[in-house]
Design a protein around this nucleic acid. Structure first.
Lengths: 220, 220
DNA sequence: GGCTTTATTTTGATTAGTCAAATTCTTATC
DNA sequence: GATAAGAATTTGACTAATCAAAATAAAGCC
């Protein structure tokens, strides 16, 4: 059985490799896990000797098929738990990430399956992040972000990546949750600033960096 | 923050001290936690230096007020989780103990309070074990067991102590769950055997040791 | 192409929790 | 009250995960 430390390393490598094949640097991995780089190196070596990752010395790390399977399991648990906390326990979508971070390592498959059924087998969590299936399939659809989409077109927010409470509370305050309708009124690359127009007529300004965390699709 | 190992030691000391003041032996504690006695000694010394227990060298260990507070918190989490698994996720009361054992160390107060409210602030879990309040109060009522109660009187099962799946499945198969009505038809101390009569007319035989795990009150 | 900056890896220590086996204490028994 | 049996403790060793700081490799720059 993988320890929760191992699970966290694998999950983080999956998230940082964006999709699948990119090598993840020790620096990024260490930062994401809040450890010093030397610790990440040590741990990655041990994951490699367990066949969970390929370590390309001094160049980065990549999940093996076995590691990916474990990582997707953790992600599934995390996202189903978040959905449960919001849908059943009525917690705020801006605060459930940290809770799920703990519970994801303690919940059994038996409990998870019940939860999944209770929630009606949801395809995405409250942030719009896709939930891997029991078999490890995950929706890999690529979306534009508010930083890259076309201007003026009516849009629907599909997903808010970035789990920090601060950012999510900013999003919530401004009605920028999955499902919300907006369009980009103006994009000033020099100033690094985006101005949104909501259906209510309200405008919201945010930085390019922040806008990159909000994924959108054309309003259907 | 107490690690889950520390939480388990404290919880187990509470359970083994039956009520409050009895000293718990290292042998019993080690057996309950599935470690060798030397490990228990080492850990108890460290708990003592943190002010969570009083260690009476070579005689046993007892919780301090601080340790008791922590232990009751763990017990509350455990029992509320068991109740949730049975009441909401419709799991079998004979199998939820092991699940709760893991989740009890990972659930936050915020989530626990929501769960408690969702369940309507239950006083006991599916085994009839009393749930400590948020303030650490626990129902200390003493009940007779099927091994000690008067013969022939109509009884109501209030609680099944002993969490092993085997025992609970035996109880379930024979309708011996909290709330069930029975009376003791015969108690043969020499043979160590008890014979029960259920309201359905069915009789059930069980050993004195097994009977000691089933707590009863006069049927109201 | 040599030098500097930056990232990565290595080395040596530390902490929590554990076991096996040797030692010491308590207690019951004669 | 001495002794044997049983329980508890101590000692030495190990694993997982971590950090600080030294050593090494890679990459960029003039």
């Amino acid at each position: 059985m993988a320890t929760s430390t191992v699970e966290n390393y694998l999950k983080q490598i999956l998230l940082l490799s964006a999709g699948d094949d990119a090598l993840v640097s020790m620096g990024d991995l260490a930062a994401a896990l809040a450890v010093v780089p030397g610790t990440a190196t040590t741990m990655v070596k041990s994951l490699a000797s367990d066949g969970l990752v390929d370590h390309h010395l001094r160049h980065g790390v990549r999940l093996t098929a076995a590691g990916r399977r474990v990582a997707l399991g953790v992600l599934r648990r995390h996202r189903l738990i978040e959905t449960f906390l919001v849908e059943v326990l009525k917690m705020d979508w801006t605060e459930v990430h940290a809770e799920a971070e703990l519970l994801e390592h303690a919940i059994s498959d038996a409990v998870l399956d019940r939860l999944d059924a209770l929630l009606g087998h949801p395809a995405a969590d409250p942030h719009g992040d896709p939930i891997p299936t029991r078999l490890g399939k995950i929706d890999a659809q690529v979306y534009a972000t508010l930083a890259t989409c076309v201007v003026a077109q009516p849009l629907r927010i599909v997903r808010v990546t970035e789990q920090s409470g601060e950012f999510l509370q900013f999003a919530e305050r401004n009605g920028l949750r999955p499902g919300a309708r907006v369009r980009v009124a103006e994009r000033d690359l020099a100033a690094g600033l985006i101005t949104l127009k909501k259906t209510s007529g309200r405008t919201v300004a945010l930085s390019l960096a922040a806008a990159g965390n909000i994924l959108v699709a054309p309003a259907r």
